[in-house]
Design a protein around this nucleic acid. Structure first.
Lengths: 184, 184
DNA sequence: GACGTTGTTTAATGTACATTACAGAAGGAG
DNA sequence: CTCCTTCTGTAATGTACATTAAACAACGTC
């Protein structure tokens, strides 16, 4: 039977959300354990006991981040046509990257050590577009891959612009213009 | 009269190019003075005497980088029509971000502390497109700004994709699809 | 109310970092 | 040959970092 011991004095989930936000704003290397402790109002051993080392904490924080993200991605890509799927993805990404009360941009796009996660997202996009090629909505797998590369580019670019201070209007402009590039 | 003193034992320009390359690959924070010294085969005091502190060295390195960059940008934007200017810019950027023998991506796009330089580039693009609006090639300043936001996005996105290992073909695909978004 | 477990606190640990002091070496000018 | 200047080499400086040791505190259980 797990015995209780001294209860934690802080809200573990709240600290994890705060860590996620810090990594989102400043990146893995831009956030020090000391800063996290100061923001959370706890001492280092408490943080280590709760989450493990900095890398483990980052993985938990990015898992929390991508949880919502994957849901949104699946939802957008499940649109009946690929064109609509991509339009939804572009628009909802522009909105996510400029959400009020949240850091601008995207943790997954900005953080070098999340390259694998980016690849997974790109795989999902390419898969959706290849399905469109199989269904005749796009001319060929080659065209599907070309569109996928373009969509990947726009998503990464919008995240970068958001971090540089672009407002939601600019991002939605970019998304709207990108949607016009759909093959005739 | 400047008296000579002991001659330098290393090639200052070569070390600057090496530093530029290191910052380009790994970013300001990813490059330590000790690493630069090791790569250059010199001791820290030599580097400090030649370039000043790390920040001054970074500024010299990024000035060297942007020297070529600005030339290319001016050349591309000087095309007779804005549409051709943007097509050239997209293609030459895709090529620059995937140049053999050079680090993938773009120092200016990747380095957080070069946000001002990015803004300058974006100003030049917007200026060129507003000129197109004044000349009747685009419908309005608002449309010019929308296209500019889109082009900024694609440029930043191609740089990000290149850093993630996208090959030249993928980047050129993205650039080609982007060019199709030109207003009818 | 003593015990085991778990959290907290303070204070250390060791490493990497940017930067510099200092002593010596290499050149030209007188 | 001596002086002045500039560079090089070694070794320090101080700071920030991630991580942990050790002593103490708070809870449930017996």
């Amino acid at each position: 039977m797990s015995v209780t011991g001294r209860p934690r004095t802080f809200d573990k989930d709240a600290v994890l959300r705060m860590a996620m936000r810090a990594f989102w704003e400043r990146g893995y290397d831009g956030v020090s354990v000391a800063q996290l402790c100061a923001e959370a109002g706890i001492a280092a051993p408490s943080l280590y006991a709760a989450f493990g080392d900095k890398n483990a904490l980052f993985e938990k924080a990015s898992a929390l981040y991508t949880e919502h993200l994957d849901e949104d991605l699946e939802r957008d890509l499940s649109a009946p046509t690929a064109r609509e799927a991509i339009e939804r993805l572009l628009r909802s990404s522009a909105e996510h990257f400029s959400a009020p009360g949240q850091p601008p941009g995207c943790l997954v796009m900005s953080e070098p050590r999340l390259a694998e996660r980016r690849d997974r997202t790109r795989d999902m996009i390419r898969t959706r577009l290849r399905r469109a090629a199989a269904e005749g909505e796009l001319a060929s797998d080659a065209e599907a891959d070309g569109v996928a590369a373009f969509v990947d580019t726009v998503l990464a670019g919008m995240a970068a612009l958001a971090r540089d201070g672009a407002d939601r209007t600019r991002l939605l402009d970019a998304a709207r213009h990108a949607a016009r590039a759909w093959p005739a």
